[in-house]
Nucleic acid binder design. Structure first.
Lengths: 160, 160
DNA sequence: TCAGTGGTGTTATGAGATAACATCACATGC
DNA sequence: GCATGTGATGTTATCTCATAACACCACTGA
């Protein structure tokens, strides 16, 4: 993360109420779909939502226990895999971190704008698909999933 | 890599002559730029070129010595960092692998089509930048570098 | 010839992720 | 009720990926 400029307070984490609401929504939706929103999955999603920015898996592991006890790695990685599969979280490959999905739409190919200075990320709806789809068609590839991540500076860090 | 279909021979590696020529070109170009194309850097580039597809860092480490002796990790990671900085190689974050740059143009933002079946990759010139740039402008971000990787099936694996 | 810069060699360790296997919870059919 | 199958979890160990730190070397320019 920060290498050149100081850390700023960007968007910041959502309020506790926001987190609760999002958790409730997710729980209700997945339960309705016949999925099991277990304690571990809810806890990991809660941590991601509360952070409001990408979080490293081992940070989730460290923060997992409400009593300060860390989780075992597979506990968190399994929850992340589930959340990702269900579109509630995304892995950001270029920084090996995970973030709650901020888009309401299910089954989307997300793209991210990532500030290398303060760590803020913005999830933007696949405005990229067009160009990539065109290239894929030209090459004869059938795309299953995409990783689109742009690194740079957020408005706040640019202003600083 | 392969999970569903068998491994096919896709494009395959280039001929030894192709590799030699590309190595010579890279050497000449960087030397002209005042960079030092050292043995380790040339060797890693040679391995990447010869593979003709993404290679894991520890595979490069294992293949490094012509006598079968592996390299020490930093040797290869340093060479990769240099090659990437100079536009001769790319890291593919979604699979933690490295590939020789197949584009002639310097200083480009590459995008990749990656076959999850046979491992073939196609480097396509940033046809993606448009959409992403637009989104970044809208969000006020200044983009420095991008990671664009599409996973799916290549034509050969689709046909199989 | 001496300092500065950039590259290499080496050791060790940090960070990210998963394999394997035992156990548990829960829904469904009998 | 209770057997049975499926999916989730707990636990241990390990594997893969990547870099920190420090000593040494090669080249360049004052």
């Amino acid at each position: 993360m920060g290498e050149a400029c100081h850390h700023h307070h960007h968007d910041g984490p959502p309020t506790a109420a926001d987190v609760e609401r999002a958790l409730g929504d997710a729980d209700a939706r997945l339960t309705a779909e016949g999925e099991r929103m277990t304690a571990a999955r809810l806890r990991v999603l809660e941590l991601l939502l509360a952070a409001g920015e990408p979080v490293k898996a081992y940070d989730l592991i460290a923060r997992f226990g409400t009593d300060g006890q860390p989780a075992k790695p597979p506990t968190v990685y399994r929850a992340l895999e589930f959340l990702e599969r269900k579109g509630l979280a995304h892995r950001i490959a270029s920084i090996s971190a995970y973030v709650a999905c901020s888009s309401g739409t299910i089954d989307h190919s997300a793209a991210f704008l990532i500030c290398d200075c303060c760590g803020a990320t913005e999830e933007v709806a696949a405005p990229v698909a067009e160009g990539l789809d065109r290239a894929a068609r030209a090459a004869g590839y059938a795309i299953v999933r995409t990783t689109v991540e742009a690194h740079g500076r957020c408005p706040a860090c640019l202003a600083a």
